[in-house]
Computed example of a mutant assay.
Amino acid sequence: MKKFQIDLIEWYIQNHRPLEFRLKKDPYEIWISEIMAQQTRIEAMLPYFKRWIQQLPDIESVAKCDDEKLNKLWQGLGYYSRCKNIKKCAIECVEKYEGKLPCTKEELLKLPGIGPYTAGAIASIAYGQRVSAIDGNVIRVFSRLYNICEDVTKTNVKKKIEKLVDESLPSKEEISYYNQALMELGALICIPKSPRCDHCPIQKYCSALDPASLPYKPKKKVRKIEYKHVYIWMYQNKVHVVKRADTGLLAGLYGFDEVKPEHIIESIELEPYIHIFSHVEWHMDATLCIVDREDSNYKTVEEIEERVALPSAFMPFMNQVKEYLWKK
């Protein structure tokens, strides 16, 4: 084993965060946690993870769970396509692998929603397979370690880093610690803007001349702006929610109407809100419309909070509605 591997693993053993899903090495829990941690800090996703595991303790329970409950458990994490793929993957595991996740990276990659990083994390941490698990943290660590100043979004540069990571892998006995140590180093020490080089256990092996400038990525394209006006229909303290189309942003989830209701008794303009997705911004205005009749899509606030997966794009308006009701 290389000296920097030894130093890194020793640092990890003494300094890692006590993340239960990694300590237990349960494939199912590692899978769910890693999918949840995409686009979300681990500390922020932990409450969601604990709630999910309490209600859905294994793959079979996910496969049998209805979509409404799954979306409600996922509410607040965003990128709901991840949740849909979890269910697809669970069903496939029940049908093909007796309700278990397969143990090799190659087999895991064939499942819906599982990419190279997640497959590598499950295979190495849970099953001790000698494979890499390369996420943004690992790319950052290795781009600095080898002073790679090329654009890491380019395929040839990614492959260069993957080769370096693969060449650095220790034995099967150490692989779980090593991959977790790389993840942890990137999360705690080799952080994006202000790396804590004076605390880094492998600083003496690092070739970076300007660590904070790496990894190099081109500037992101300016996000498209879309203007939206939603109408929140209310009848006798009940709120009208509608299921969105099966395609497009927030597909299949619930939201508020984008058409003005008839029979309005009173209209109240709410505070506007800007919601930012990865590639688009919704600049949103909203009107609370008090109406004099209802249909089956009206629900109490309690019913919405308990059973309806309302995306975060609509939550600021929902909070204003709750404040209005509280003041009544």
Rank of each mutant, 00 (worst) to 15 (best):
G186P: 12
C93F: 12
V94C: 15
M183V: 04
N137E: 06
G136F: 07
K228A: 02
E43F: 08
P170A: 07
L111M: 12
G99K: 10
E95C: 09
H283A: 09
V308L: 14
E174N: 15
I276T: 10
K238D: 07
E107I: 12
M315G: 01
H16V: 06
S61M: 06
Y178K: 06
G136E: 06
E302F: 00
V239H: 05
K2W: 03
P261I: 01
S267C: 06
K193F: 12
Y273K: 04
L111T: 09
P215G: 11
R17Q: 12
A123Q: 00
L23C: 06
T40P: 07
C200Y: 04
I13M: 11
K204G: 09
D246Y: 07
K322H: 07
E20C: 01
H229G: 05
L164Y: 08
D210L: 02
P112L: 05
C149G: 15
A251K: 14
E43A: 10
A286M: 09
D66G: 05
I232W: 02
Q39D: 04
M284Y: 03
K110V: 13
W74R: 07
D26N: 15
S296A: 15
E281A: 04
D295A: 03
L185I: 11
L288F: 00
V157Y: 06
Q5L: 08
L169P: 11
I42S: 02
S81A: 15
I42Y: 07
M315P: 00
L288K: 03
S176V: 12
I202V: 15
T40F: 04
Y231D: 08
E150D: 15
C93L: 13
A37T: 09
I139H: 01
K299N: 04
A123Y: 00
L101E: 01
I304H: 11
L270R: 10
I191H: 01
Y28T: 02
Y146N: 10
E167S: 13
Q203W: 08
L185C: 11
K159N: 14
A181R: 08
E281Q: 13
L73K: 09
I191Y: 02
R223K: 15
P201L: 00
D198S: 13
E98C: 11
G136L: 07
D58P: 05
R196W: 07
I30S: 00
T118Q: 05
F256T: 04
E173K: 14
E258D: 08
D135W: 06
V141F: 10
C197Y: 10
E10C: 09
Y324C: 12
I139C: 06
I114W: 05
L46K: 10
V222A: 15
G128K: 10
E107V: 11
I139Q: 00
C89V: 00
M1I: 04
L169M: 11
F49L: 08
S124T: 07
A119G: 05
P192T: 02
K193D: 11
C103Q: 11
K160W: 04
F256Q: 00
I91V: 14
A121Q: 03
E107N: 12
L182R: 05
E269K: 14
W282D: 10
D246V: 01
C206L: 05
K243H: 08
L73N: 06
Q5E: 14
L250E: 14
S171M: 12
Q180S: 10
H279R: 15
I91Y: 11
R22D: 08
L325W: 10
G78N: 09
Q203A: 12
A126M: 05
S168D: 04
R130E: 03
A212E: 08
N179W: 05
K328D: 01
L108P: 02
